[in-house]
């Protein structure tokens, strides 16, 4: 078995002949990785997932999961994947337990097995005491966990998570990630996820791809991406009122120095290693450092650098959450 679990080559989706939602996207995900798609609303994350999970047919390009082509061997793909969609898709009128069993039936899992598994999974996501309650009485967090549990009923080898923590509060988000990590270890899964929470992508993903307007802008592991920005920023002040730019510039690994009214903004490869060297060089020249601060770039800076936009779109994600609730309400109003 190849180590590449997901391979996408030139994957493209055009809606209505003119809306290019996903534009020649190529990437690969290795066994055991958590691979994250990071991008703003409408970037094409869900559309990409839908092509990978065989729900949408690519307009162009190919993709394969564990070597199975998503178009030609769609049925094989479906057997090995688990999906936790962006929306809450559980049937409101059924109980949590019934929903999971329904999923199991669709996979053709024998009832003896699925009953045991459903109980196990519900236990795992801490829904045991609600298992016989109708889903319409569940909170957002409970619904997410239920989606998670039903996405795992077939013991998938590749799990697709579309914004798994969208609209959850900070605590529930953390808890959800704990489940996901635990499940990943337990079932030895490869995970493909999308998110627009930067912290989440940063702490959880082994590798991320930033996608905007349907195109992958850059792929790499979070540290790598941050370093690609040119490293850390050191800000330094000295007692003396002299321009020390040239001294700093002579220090190894310093990329850029800017004098901002007596305080110097220095872009360096690695802040931890270079800061002592700068202090040392200044001391040798007889200057005294009075202040020093070190900032590591966050994914936000990365994001800003590559998309030209800030990713701090909490308002937007709130909006997304609200529209999701609307969908649920509309369903109930039926």
């Amino acid at each position: 078995m190849s180590k590449e679990v997901i391979v996408a080559t030139g994957l493209t989706k055009v809606f209505n002949k003119n809306l290019v939602a996903v534009d020649h996207v190529s990437f690969s995900v290795k066994h055991g990785e958590i691979f994250g798609f990071l991008g703003p609303n409408g970037a094409g994350k869900t559309t990409t997932i839908n092509m990978l999970i065989t729900v949408l047919r690519p307009t162009e390009g190919t993709a394969s999961i564990l070597g199975y082509d998503v178009v030609k061997q769609a049925n094989e793909v479906r057997k090995v994947i688990g999906v936790v969609p962006q929306e809450y898709t559980a049937d409101e009128d059924l109980t949590g337990y019934e929903n999971i069993i329904l999923c199991a039936d669709l996979y053709g899992i024998p009832r003896e097995v699925s009953k045991k598994r459903a109980v196990e999974l519900l236990e795992l996501v801490e829904l045991t005491s609600f298992k016989d309650k109708k889903v319409e009485t569940y909170s957002g967090g409970m619904r997410r966990r239920l989606e998670l549990a039903s996405g795992l009923i077939n013991r998938p080898r590749v799990l697709f998570l579309d914004e798994p923590t969208l609209g959850l509060d900070v605590q529930t988000r953390a808890a959800t990630w704990n489940y996901i990590k635990r499940l990943k270890e337990e079932y030895d899964m490869t995970i493909f996820m999308t998110t627009h929470y930067l912290e989440e992508a940063d702490t959880l993903c082994d590798r991320i791809a930033i996608i905007d307007y349907g195109k992958i802008i850059i792929t790499g592991d979070p540290e790598e991406l941050k370093h690609s920005l040119g490293g850390d920023i050191i800000t330094i002040s000295i007692k003396e009122d002299v321009d020390i730019s040239s001294i700093i510039r002579s220090v190894e690994n310093v990329k850029e120095v800017r004098n901002e009214n007596g305080s110097y903004r220095i872009k360096v490869e690695s802040g931890e290693e270079t800061a002592p060297l700068i202090i040392e060089a200044l001391r040798r020249n007889g200057y005294t450092v009075t202040r020093l601060s070190l900032t590591e770039p966050t994914l936000n800076e990365v994001y800003l650098e590559y998309t030209g936009r800030s990713m701090r779109d909490t308002e937007e994600s709130k909006e997304a959450f609200r529209s999701q609730r609307m969908t649920i309400r509309r369903a109930r109003a039926r």
Binding site: N50, V55, R78, I81, Y88, T89, L106, Y107, T327, A331
Partner: peptide, 17 residues
């Protein structure tokens, strides 16, 4: 229509049924 709207249909379509 409802199944499609609520994403249930997509979910079912991602299973090998």
């Amino acid at each position: 229509v409802w199944d499609r709207r609520l994403g249930f249909l997509d979910k079912v379509l991602s299973t090998p049924v």
